[in-house]
Amino acid sequence: MIKLYGTPPTRALRVIWLLNELGLDYEMLPVGILEGENRQSEFLALNPAAKVPVLVDGSLVVTESAAIQLYLAEKYPQAGFIPESVEDRAQMYRWIFFLMTEIEQPLWRIVRHTFLYPEEKRLPQDIELAKQECLEMVAVLERHMRDRAFLVADRISVADFNAAYTLDWANEEKMLEGAPRLKAYLQSMYARPKAPPTIAEAFAALESQAVTGDAMVAG
């Protein structure tokens, strides 16, 4: 049984999507980040970086959400999520790296300086810089997707499953207001039958669980 450490709304959503699309059975093991469970020795033995997601497949441990996506797609090639030609694979890697470095990183800076860092370490000016950088790169992707259904060639690939989560995050931060094509693309991806919950849906589920838990304690 495959084990996945981490739960929505984290980047574990990227892995959940691939697992769902591939029809694989897996066990999800929540890791309480706020409770410091990612800093305990048992978890650090899996990922010294203390981050989720982590995939355990037999004796193999894989970290980093994009790497896990690629591993699963390569292990189960019958799904066709890895392009056949080396040229198309190069483009798939290109857009995955673009998404992770040019769009996700400024989004992560916004989150850090908005509420993750202690208040005395937050830099409001970096939030504005990150927003500007993110919008510029979103515009690049918007132009690329102008006449496309998928990021690479004419069929879905790992790059699209990576992009959907990243763009959902960007959408939550109002970064897609000037990108109608990306908004339509995002909607089409989450319309897939095996799509995981969106970030907003995952947060809502967490809040609902917290309210239920409080009610049970109060009762």
Rank of each mutant, 00 (worst) to 15 (best):
A50F: 14
T212S: 13
D126T: 15
P77V: 03
P118K: 07
M175T: 08
Y5V: 13
I110S: 06
Y26S: 06
E136T: 11
L186K: 08
F81D: 01
A170T: 07
N47M: 13
V62E: 10
M100W: 00
E104F: 09
R11I: 10
S65C: 09
M189H: 11
A204E: 13
Y71Q: 04
P30K: 05
Y117W: 06
L13M: 12
E177H: 11
S85L: 05
M216W: 10
Y26Q: 08
T10A: 14
A50Q: 15
L29D: 01
L60I: 11
A79N: 03
T10E: 01
P8C: 04
D154E: 07
E201L: 02
W169L: 14
L19I: 05
L44F: 10
E120W: 07
T101M: 12
V217R: 15
Y5D: 08
L29R: 12
L46R: 12
L186F: 09
R143A: 12
L123S: 14
K174D: 14
D214G: 09
I103G: 04
I127H: 04
L60K: 13
L70P: 02
G36N: 07
A79Y: 01
A202Y: 06
C134M: 15
A218K: 15
A149S: 10
E27G: 13
A12F: 04
L135N: 11
P30A: 04
W108E: 12
A179K: 05
G178V: 06
N20F: 03
L167P: 00
M137T: 08
I2A: 09
K3G: 12
P197K: 01
A210G: 11
Q40H: 15
A204Q: 14
A79P: 05
F97E: 12
I68A: 02
M189P: 07
V52T: 08
P193A: 02
R122V: 04
D88G: 00
E120Y: 09
F81W: 03
I199V: 08
P180N: 03
L167V: 00
N47W: 13
A210S: 09
E136W: 10
H144M: 02
